[in-house]
Amino acid sequence: MNIPPIPANLDDQTACPPPASECGEPMVPLTGYSPRIAIYPAYYHLGYKGAQPEVYLRKGAAERLALAAGLLPAGYQLVVLDGWRSHEVQSSLYEGFRQSLIAQGWTDEEAIVEELRKFVAKPSTDLEKPSPHLSGGAVDLTITGPDGWLAMGTDFDDFSELAETRHFETIAAPTEKEREIRDNRRLLYHVMTQAGFTNYAQEWWHYEYGTRSWACQTKQQPFYGGILSLPESME
């Protein structure tokens, strides 16, 4: 596959985004939503308290995800690892990564917070300034093909420079395996961005639509506020 490179001029993703104005759009389950979309709720399988066996997204984000899946070559699917994420799960992830940094010898709290900010959004119950996954507009995903999940260079939730979306674009003389990983990331990036999502540059698997981070990159207004709990009909 001859796939264009992932562009280097990604917008500054550290800028302070505007508060979200909630549009009232419902969330939908992704199981059975499209034959080109599979789910593997990673945090549920890892046993995180509060994690759901289903993956949910806002209706508009789900529609765009189906569009992205339709852009894949025949025989390929998107595999969704996480969508809407409760405050409980977000808090658990944040504290777990914090403790792992401390175990590695990090002692300066300011430096710890800065490192955390790169990879795990600070938990928030502010509905106008939610963490991305609390809005239902953020999705973590990969691609599967005829021979299984595509090689992406790292596992999901790898907190290293290898996880940066463009990491394999910067290798001057890539090996055959590195070219394969680079092209797989390119495929995911281009189908998702063509469908209207934006990528978080530190994580090849993380894409957003309608969120505050998406608004910063697209110069639009965010319209997905926070959702603190699932409707009873979805639980």
Rank of each mutant, 00 (worst) to 15 (best):
M1W: 01
N2G: 04
N2H: 09
I3L: 15
P4I: 08
P5H: 15
I6G: 10
L10D: 02
D11S: 15
D11M: 11
D12W: 07
Q13C: 09
A15Q: 13
P18G: 07
P19E: 05
A20F: 05
E22I: 02
E22Q: 09
G24L: 10
E25K: 00
M27P: 00
M27C: 04
V28P: 02
V28M: 10
L30T: 07
T31G: 02
Y33R: 01
S34C: 14
A38H: 12
Y40G: 11
P41G: 13
A42H: 13
Y43I: 06
H45K: 14
L46V: 04
G47N: 06
G47C: 04
K49S: 10
G50Q: 04
G50H: 11
G50N: 09
A51I: 06
A51G: 05
P53R: 05
P53Q: 02
V55T: 09
V55P: 03
R58H: 04
A61F: 12
E63A: 12
A66F: 14
A66I: 07
A68L: 11
Y76A: 08
L78N: 08
L78H: 08
L81P: 10
D82W: 02
D82E: 15
R85T: 14
R85W: 06
L93M: 07
Y94A: 03
Y94Q: 00
L101E: 02
I102V: 14
I102N: 01
A103H: 00
A103P: 00
A103I: 01
Q104V: 01
G105I: 03
W106D: 04
T107C: 07
T107F: 03
E109H: 07
E109N: 12
I112K: 12
I112G: 09
E115K: 13
E115Q: 15
F119P: 00
F119M: 04
A121Y: 09
A121R: 01
A121M: 04
K122I: 08
S124M: 08
T125D: 13
T125R: 14
D126Q: 10
L127Q: 06
E128Y: 03
E128N: 07
P130K: 10
I143A: 05
G145N: 10
G145F: 13
G148I: 12
G148Q: 11
A151E: 13
M152Y: 03
F156G: 05
D158Q: 02
E161I: 00
A163S: 14
E164P: 00
T165F: 14
H167T: 02
H167W: 12
E169M: 03
E169T: 03
T170H: 15
T170M: 14
T170R: 15
T170P: 02
I171K: 11
A172G: 05
T175S: 15
T175I: 07
T175F: 05
K177L: 11
R179S: 14
R179L: 15
E180F: 05
E180P: 06
D183V: 03
R185L: 10
H190Y: 10
H190S: 10
V191F: 02
Q194L: 14
A195E: 00
T198N: 06
N199Y: 04
Y200D: 05
Y200I: 01
E203K: 09
E203L: 09
W205D: 12
Y207F: 15
Y209K: 01
G210W: 02
T211Q: 15
A215L: 12
A215Y: 08
C216W: 02
Q220Y: 00
Q220C: 11
Y224I: 02
Y224M: 09
Y224A: 08
G225Q: 05
I227Q: 12
L228I: 07
P231Q: 05
P231Y: 05
E232P: 06
M234H: 14
E235L: 01
